[in-house]
Design a protein around this nucleic acid. Structure first.
Lengths: 371, 371
DNA sequence: ATCTCACATGGAAACGTTTTCACAATGGGC
DNA sequence: GCCCATTGTGAAAACGTTTCCATGTGAGAT
């Protein structure tokens, strides 16, 4: 039995029909064939017909590689996101793809798994494969040397706008302030911000900053920063532990919707009902949010639109147009069912007066009875 | 102010350093430089040093395009999925990527938006860009002419195994039978299968077939097939309407988890509690399933593993190894909280005896009171 | 001292395009 | 009838690699 590679080797001699074959079949030079097939120059009607028919008969199609080598444009765009497993980035890539395809470009999609070293490595690889442009979400665009040396246009996504690069983004600070306003409007004063990868994510930091700023402006105590790592976030008990360590809080702002769901779930494990005993607000507005029994209150953004905008601005840059930074993409606060007014019990009886150790005991007691 | 393209044109003269530049700098021929940099042939220690240093000084990196043209291997793999907005496919692509990257290949990711014509178009484009292999999930692999003419190895994902192609898959029929068994074990006899894109998806059809087969084997009436289109599925009221049209059913098998959540949500709108009045089982095992207030009962599969397997078998094929079809990937039934035993009221009072029009009235009444 | 032989090296062809340039043929205006 | 556009055409160079082949060098064997 012949393996594929043997077959491939055997076939590779005359495997693909090139424009030369077409020219020979049509009885003309390759230049003419190229002109006809690309409609890029003069050709007699009769010759056009001959060439086109030859191409059809032979089943010819251009080699993108030959073209790229000659024209120095690969018609590909390198895309770097932290992970495709996060639907926010996946949707953004879908938007990028939809937009790029219309212009004849192919996205080269890469994910770094949130690893800064991989970021650099991927960027280098992408640049080496002659991409015509770059659409990037990474740990630290400002620190990246590969990004700095890029000789092609770059669009950023999700990041805060960075001088020197066009960015498709939502105003994280403003959105986080809105979250704070919502909490405060409902009487919350003891707030927390739950973050994943706080150190590596400018998005997380901006959200916290906005959250904090609005709290201060309203005379509400600074929100507590609660950092979590990936692994713990996936394990309900670990999340519950973290929650238990901060018993006085009545409102939690999660840096993304998954985290918000995890928090909600963990609260349940501790016997605390959302939103009766704890209010939770998320970020992103992922699709399932609507469908839940208690719909998530969250900042709703349109990741697909972000991808499309990034692709569009990149296309403009690649066309040589002057790059202008578009305004931030819109967001809305989606009123779900995970935000409620602070109950009197929470506000007066517990959170305000009792020492936090008391809460801790209470919480753990409830946990035991509940499990 | 100079636009980018002007700058690019100006720079393109000597923009990129080629291996010729390295050779000139090192004072040797390009052949030697190539041999040294690729460690592909003999070279004196001194010459190696000279070349390596020249390459480093000049910041040289190989042009993937030049290489591809010469070696006739682009080191890219074309990937086609219906949509990246569906986390199942996104996770699979993440798995593909992780696996391919290790072998030095770049995935070219495309989404067809479930459009069969786009499937063909994308496949042709991918083939024209000289991909070394193809990883595909599409409407109909068996009907695709572009796939048939592919001269590179192909791995399928998610599809039922198709003679002539290696496929990474779960046994949809077996999984659906397991779903039926679970329903029946809990006393359900009036079942339905809710499907999206039933006509275009062999996965949906296989799941229905297995579901039906097990029902027959157990002497349970054939499950009702309930088809829905994309748009309706997104709108809770439309889903509710569809549900209302099938009032006698006590158990619904949804062809994916999102649909299951939508059904659950719609049942709520109709005043029917899940799982008290209606049991729901999903398919896929998406991550949030765990985190819900009433965790979803579902068939749990590992999309990432599917992607990794597809990539691995493809790598083997591309290496020329004999392609052997691996066994189906495992699935487990995840016991959530959306499946419960049939209540007496449901079983005796309503479903079994009353004419269906009565249910319809009842259901709509409940709806009105509930809304 | 001559003959091999292995090794190091560079020239050149090839991969599939596009594009520049030169050439031939045609036709209209003097 | 001559010149100059205009038009259709093909040869050839270039893009950046890899690889085949030929050449040159030195060492070891006769």
């Amino acid at each position: 039995m012949e393996t594929f590679s043997q077959w491939a080797t055997r076939m590779s001699r005359k495997q693909s029909i090139t424009i030369k074959d077409v020219a020979r079949e049509a009885g003309c030079g390759v230049a003419t064939a190229s002109r006809v097939l690309n409609a890029s120059g003069p050709a007699s009607a009769e010759m056009s017909e001959r060439v086109r028919r030859a191409a059809r008969d032979l089943g010819f199609s251009f080699s993108a590689i030959g073209r790229a080598l000659q024209s120095r444009r690969s018609m590909t765009v390198g895309c770097l996101v932290p992970s495709l497993a996060n639907p926010v980035f996946a949707e953004a890539m879908q938007g990028v793809q939809d937009c790029l395809r219309g212009a004849g470009y192919q996205p080269l999609v890469c994910a770094s798994n949130y690893d800064e070293a991989v970021d650099e490595d991927i960027l280098r690889t992408l640049l080496a494969s002659q991409v015509d442009g770059l659409i990037v979400t990474m740990a630290s665009p400002s620190r990246s040397v590969a990004l700095g040396t890029a000789s092609v246009p770059v669009s950023l996504m999700f990041h805060d706008p960075l001088p020197g690069h066009i960015t498709a983004y939502v105003d994280n600070v403003a959105a986080a302030r809105e979250v704070a306003r919502q909490f405060i409007k409902h009487g919350h004063r003891r707030l927390g911000f739950v973050a994943l990868r706080f150190a590596e994510s400018d998005r997380s930091r901006s959200r916290y900053a906005g959250f904090m700023a609005e709290c201060r402006a309203a005379g509400v105590p600074d929100p507590v920063l609660i950092e979590m790592d990936d692994r713990s976030a996936r394990c309900p008990h670990r999340v519950a532990e973290v929650l238990r360590a901060h018993p006085g809080l009545t409102g939690l702002f999660a840096s993304n919707d998954f985290l918000a769901l995890a928090v909600q779930n963990a609260a349940g494990l501790l016997g605390r009902n959302v939103p009766r005993d704890l209010s939770v607000i998320g970020f992103d507005g992922i699709g399932i949010g609507h469908l839940l029994a208690t719909p998530l209150s969250t900042i709703e953004t349109d990741a697909g639109a972000m991808g499309r905008q990034a692709a569009e601005t990149l296309l403009n840059s690649m066309q040589g147009e002057e790059a202008i930074q578009p305004p931030a993409l819109p967001f809305v606060f989606r009123t779900g069912a995970t935000l409620a007014a602070v109950s009197e019990k929470m506000d007066d009886g517990l959170a305000a007066t009792l020492p936090s150790s008391a809460h801790l005991d209470l919480a753990s007691t409830k946990t035991r009875t509940n499990q």
